[in-house]
Design a protein around this nucleic acid. Sequence first.
RNA 1: GGGCAGUUACCCAAGUGGCCAAAGGGGGCUGACUGUAAAUCAGCUGGCGCACGCCUUCGGAGGUUCGAAUCCUUCACUGCCCA
Length: 426
Amino acid sequence: MPANAFEELQWRGLVFDCIEGVQNLLATQTVTVYNGFDVTADSLHIGHLVPLLALARLQRYGHHPIAVAGGGTTMIGDPSGKSSERPLLSRQQIEENAEAIKGQLARFLDFDSKTNPARLVNNADWLLPLNLIDFLRDIGKHFTVNYMIAKDSVRARLEREEGISFTEFSYMLLQSYDFLHLYRTYGCLLQTGGSDQWGNITAGVELIRRVTGGTAYGLVYPLITKADGSKFGKTESGAVWLDPRRTSPYRFYQFWLNTDDRDVIHYLKVFTFLTQPEIEELQHALEEKPEQRDAQRTLARVMTGMLHGETALARAEQAAQVLFGGAVEGLSAAEIEDIFADVPSARLNKDQFSGTGLNIVDLLVGSGMMKSRGEARRAIGEGGIYLNNHRVAESERLVTVNDLLEGRFLILRRGKKTYFLVEVVG
RNA sequence: GGGCAGUUACCCAAGUGGCCAAAGGGGGCUGACUGUAAAUCAGCUGGCGCACGCCUUCGGAGGUUCGAAUCCUUCACUGCCCA
């Protein structure tokens, strides 16, 4: 184990940039550190795991973490990293999101520690009561517009057609105020965040210096990249969420399992608590026998277990084994239900399959797996549709009761990986 | 308040009266190869019947015309300049 938190973050490739003195700070004293999380949705996604897990890492080295749910700042909207203005969320929506996200944040931090328990706060508590005139006098006066428009997040938007609203322009003042508030209330000395937060963090450091004369620090994590240049954390069906209702444990497991060879070691460092020797071993395995995908398998296993628990992990692994082993036909009804618990599904009435049966195209559309008949027909033409793991050759294929597995299931598949279960009832 | 420019499919972006369901690029999907990888190659990418057909779409509404994404009016929004 590295000697201190800074070294820990460093070997994991998590230090993108930091303010002079952070290394010494983390090595020589225990500090209170905070990281803010937007509450623009009712769940965090895997991108948020980088700063969240880093907070947990810092806690393991004795530092005091504060996770801040941005119930106040999300009312305004952070322009950082955004190329266009965001619509405002309703107050009620934000409150609901904040509650949901607080629950997720809490799962990764230790609140029972005797020495350095984590704290979880919502910046709505101190931002909402602010009075405009006081704020402009007490906080606004410390910033020049010149300083503010020099920030990347603002400048990028000034150069664009759409521009930036005064609302979002003001955002950095609020986040700066957060830092000042936490500095005063908890003696918080360090703010962390993604690299796009650098401007907001340094603004806070600046505010603390001007208002209190004190020194605060910032550290930012790199943006997680993918070797093929596409955006990390996205799949066909959108972001990979922590909430199992949005991203099932099965999909979550599959997401990590599908990691590119070139990225997997990096992800093990960033997203898991595996030690340096453990990761090095996996790196050797990757070089020797890439087709075994030990590194990917470990990553998927550790991540799914950490987030969704052992039971969900076991189920995801079993499902993967069966679905990609191809042995669908010998399964019992109970096994099918279990394996497909996380896979999208639909129920259809049995009548439709009696007699000559139901056309495959109607089945694909009727079940909700495909949006339109044209799309379904096209997919079949491309050879991309499978019924019970057998490729469907022509779009006139009729599906009858004889096709039902265990008398009530149909397993549809699109391409190699996208499964859909139809349960026939009645 | 005035002037100018703009609003095209998931995104960017061509198209300035019929040959436009709409070029091109990106993204996405599928297939081949493979390791449920990468790279590469190929096909597909508005809806309905699928065959040459029909329907809906080019910011909203209305109009001109045999015929409009393309012209006119008006409204909305965005940007730039002026006040």
